[in-house]
């Protein structure tokens, strides 16, 4: 086994030991790692769990489509035009650093309770990072790309679709990776406050019942999903950034 993998596993083991240590200090507040995994396995085997997981997955998939589509629709045209980018970037960055959770009441007022509010909340989380990375990805391209497109007399739209957007794919993938995790966070938070279904609702329910094993099991499952997806996108990103031109 390569040392690197061994070291990473070692760090993971230290983390698990720390978790176990906290469990020994406060057995009622924190379930042990083994207990959490057992609870998660139990939930995965129970038929009542899957409709909730499906609801969350569907809301997340919709949010992701809107966040990526909307982010590209805003970011790519801004990247085409340096002045527009200069105007737009500080606005986008301010939106990114805004605690979006405070906007949740507005979303609820506009969309009402239910799926559309969750999807809207997930979308506003993910849209901005996708837009920022797409914009900067197009802006950072060498000018020779745009010149080549001009020499071929491509229209603005064809330039973007056939030349600039494909060239900016590595940055777009970075944006999508960040958008992916914050969209998941948005949908999950959305479910925690105003939903009768979904994993966020299950978590809120467990909090209400002081059911610590279930709380930790849900966090473990959502966290494991997020980390796995992130790792896959990160691997894709590395491949794209280091591909031969």
């Amino acid at each position: 086994m390569p040392t690197r993998l061994l070291d990473t596993l070692l760090v993971l083991a230290v983390g698990l030991l720390a978790w176990q240590g906290v469990h020994w200090l406060a057995p009622d507040a924190v379930t042990s790692p083994a207990g959490t995994v057992a609870r998660a396995a139990e939930m995965l085997a129970s038929p009542r769990f899957w409709p909730h997981a499906g609801e969350t997955a569907w809301a997340f998939a919709l949010s992701l489509v809107f966040a990526i589509g909307g982010g590209l629709a805003i970011g790519l045209p801004l990247g085409l035009h340096r002045f527009s980018a200069e105007v737009g970037e500080p606005i986008l960055v301010s939106l990114y650093s805004l605690p979006k959770i405070t906007l949740y009441p507005v979303i609820l007022l506009v969309f009402g309770l239910g799926l559309s509010a969750k999807v809207a909340f997930g979308t506003i989380h993910g849209l901005v990072p996708v837009a920022i990375f797409a914009m900067n990805g197009v802006l950072a391209l060498p000018p020779v790309y745009a010149r080549a497109a001009r020499a071929l007399r491509l229209s603005r739209w064809r330039t973007l679709a056939a030349v600039l957007a494909p060239a900016a794919v590595p940055e777009i993938v970075t944006g999508v990776r960040i958008g992916f995790s914050v969209t998941l966070l948005g949908v999950f938070i959305g479910e925690m406050f105003s939903s009768q279904r979904g994993l966020g609702f299950l978590l809120m329910n467990a909090i209400g019942l002081h059911d610590v094993p279930t709380m930790l099991a849900i966090i473990l499952m959502v966290g494991a999903f997020a980390v796995t997806a992130n790792a896959a996108l990160l691997a894709l990103e590395h491949r794209l950034h280091h591909r031969p031109a």
Partner: peptide, 26 residues
Amino acid sequence: RRALDPFLASYYALPFFAFYPVLIVV
């Protein structure tokens, strides 16, 4: 550092606010 890198890269993928109730308990 090499051992920590994968953890740092996926840190912000975790749904943090879900930890908040656990923190309150602790």
